[in-house]
Deep mutational scan, measured.
Amino acid sequence: GSLMYASIFGNVSAIIQRLYSGTARYHTQMLRVREFIRFHQIPNPLRQRLEEYFQHAWSYTNGIDMNAVLKGFPECLQADICLHLNRSLLQHCKPFRGATKGCLRALAMKFKTTHAPPGDTLVHAGDLLTALYFISRGSIEILRGDVVVAILGKNDIFGEPLNLYARPGKSNGDVRALTYCDLHKIHRDDLLEVLDMYPEFSDHFWSSLEITFNLRDTNMIPGSPGSTELEGGFSRQRKRKLSFRRRTDKDTEQPGEVSALGPGRAGAGPSSRGRPGGPWGESPSSGPSSPESSEDEGPGRSSSPLRLVPFSSPRPPGEPPGGEPLMEDCEKSSDTCNPLSGAFSGVSNIFSFWGDSRGRQYQELPRCPAPTPSLLNIPLSSPGRRPRGDVESRLDALQRQLNRLETRLSADMATVLQLLQRQMTLVPPAYSAVTTPGPGPTSTSPLLPVSPLPTLTLDSLSQVSQFMACEELPPGAPELPQEGPTRRLSLPGQLGALTSQPLHRHGSDPGS
């Protein structure tokens, strides 16, 4: 009898404990919600809404976190579960008819179910419309201010047509639940991603989709105040780019002037030289400038040598048109050559190039014969006009050509200096018209024969001689050997007369 009593008592207590286990969990969670309300000092109306929603959600799901349970299964099984949970929507909604099984599984994985109690606001006026909503159960109302403009029910759709707008718009009203509602919502990016994977279904979906109420604000059109608020930074940046392009296009129409201050000032006329910023005076940081632009901040801005204009002085008759350009485009679109090309026009420029290279940067340069637009006047290309890779490749080509020119210049200078040193070592320090008596009659020769300089066969020296023939050397430049009979510069000019005159010897006659 005691054994029977113990078994009955144990079973009854276990049954009672299981009955009250759900209630215990409910009270535990309710205590957490109330502690949250007390800690954050939530006001009474919002506090009442929180408690009511918790009670309804507990009775609806029995305190089970559906998302946590669903995430515990593998992905393939999750797709089947989501397809079952959203079967009513996918079967009865017209846009989803005719979709393949794979497309429906992908869509079912992207849908999220939302449960809303009465009085809950789903979308506020001015919120971004980031999702498309399908009503599965219940009814909602749409308000503009305090005026109800629409009441939607089961199988209705609200949001915005995503295929017509590249960016999400703003809501033009509040969406509030009238009863307990079940909503299926899919985010904008998720829907577009699935439709991109199934393009054959995309056309059918957009053609058959009928949005019951379009929440997009109709005033959000390009150029409206609301649109400016939504895309303020983007609009200002776009206007700045367009104004920069218009100014650079105007600059290219004036090829007669070359400016070292950047493309923003290349198009300024002579009357605007004294102004601080020219056409860019209202925004000094709008356009890029070269490193020399920092010198323009000092006094005497109108007389600054940074602004270059072609000189009108005539060229000498024998002067060549100019050196070879550094870039391939210089032959086609440049009416002034790079300062480095002028360094190779003569030997005198070679000796004085490194010492006063900055001073020569603004000297007169030889002109190319074609009066085409200036290379320095070409505006900086924006990322939309020329690819970045093209600019980098041009810079690399320019750097390689500069290296080759520097190597060639160093070799030419070394060769010229070597020839000058050899000339100085071969010439005796001094010569006299009267020579010392020699031991015999073989001493009648006034000077030792001097062998002429070897013929220069280097390509670089031939180019130097060509430049010497075309360029007029300055007075202080050293002379180079030329073709024809060679003669030492330090010898007297009348050596031929010395050989014809008898030598005057000093000596005593033994017979006297």
Rank of each mutant, 00 (worst) to 15 (best):
G126F: 01
L128N: 08
T130W: 13
L132A: 01
L132R: 02
Y133P: 01
S136T: 13
I140G: 01
I140R: 01
R144P: 01
V149M: 11
A150D: 02
A150T: 09
I151S: 04
L152Q: 01
G153M: 10
K154D: 12
I157Y: 04
I157K: 02
I157V: 10
E160C: 01
L164V: 06
A166T: 12
R167D: 06
R167W: 10
P168N: 03
K170N: 09
K170S: 06
K170Q: 09
N172S: 13
G173P: 02
G173R: 05
V175C: 11
A177L: 02
L178N: 03
C181N: 01
H184A: 08
H184M: 05
H184W: 04
K185T: 10
D190V: 03
D190L: 01
L191Q: 02
L192G: 04
L192S: 06
V194E: 01
L195M: 08
L195T: 05
Y198C: 01
P199R: 05
W206L: 12
F213Y: 12
F213Q: 03
N214M: 02
L215H: 01
L215A: 01
R216F: 01
M220S: 09
I221Y: 06
P225H: 09
G226L: 13
E231Q: 12
G232W: 10
G233A: 12
R236D: 11
R236F: 08
Q237A: 13
K241M: 10
K241V: 14
K241P: 10
L242I: 12
S243C: 10
F244Q: 10
R245D: 15
R245Q: 12
R245Y: 11
R245P: 14
T248Q: 11
T248M: 13
T248A: 10
E253S: 11
G256E: 13
P263L: 10
R265M: 11
A266H: 09
G269P: 06
G269Y: 15
P270R: 08
R273N: 14
R273F: 06
G281Q: 14
S286A: 06
P288E: 11
S289F: 13
E295H: 13
E295F: 07
G298K: 15
S302C: 07
L308I: 04
L308C: 12
P310Q: 09
S312R: 10
P314T: 07
R315I: 15
P320M: 06
G322T: 14
L326V: 03
D329M: 06
E331R: 09
K332G: 09
S333R: 09
S333C: 15
D335I: 09
P339M: 10
L340G: 07
S341Q: 09
F344I: 11
G346T: 06
N349R: 12
F353C: 08
G355N: 05
G355W: 04
G355E: 10
S357H: 03
S357R: 09
R358C: 04
Q361N: 06
Q361F: 12
E364T: 07
R367E: 10
P369C: 12
P369N: 09
N377R: 14
S381P: 12
R385Q: 10
R386A: 10
V391T: 15
S393T: 05
R394Y: 05
D396H: 04
L398Y: 08
D412W: 03
D412A: 03
A414E: 11
T415P: 04
Q418D: 06
V427N: 04
P429A: 10
P441N: 10
P441T: 07
S443D: 14
S445K: 06
P446T: 11
P452T: 09
T455E: 10
T455L: 11
L458Y: 14
L461I: 07
S462W: 10
S462F: 10
S465A: 11
S465T: 08
F467V: 13
E471C: 12
A477Q: 05
A477V: 11
P481Y: 04
P485S: 11
L495R: 10
G496F: 04
G496R: 09
P502C: 13
H504D: 10
H506V: 09
S508D: 05
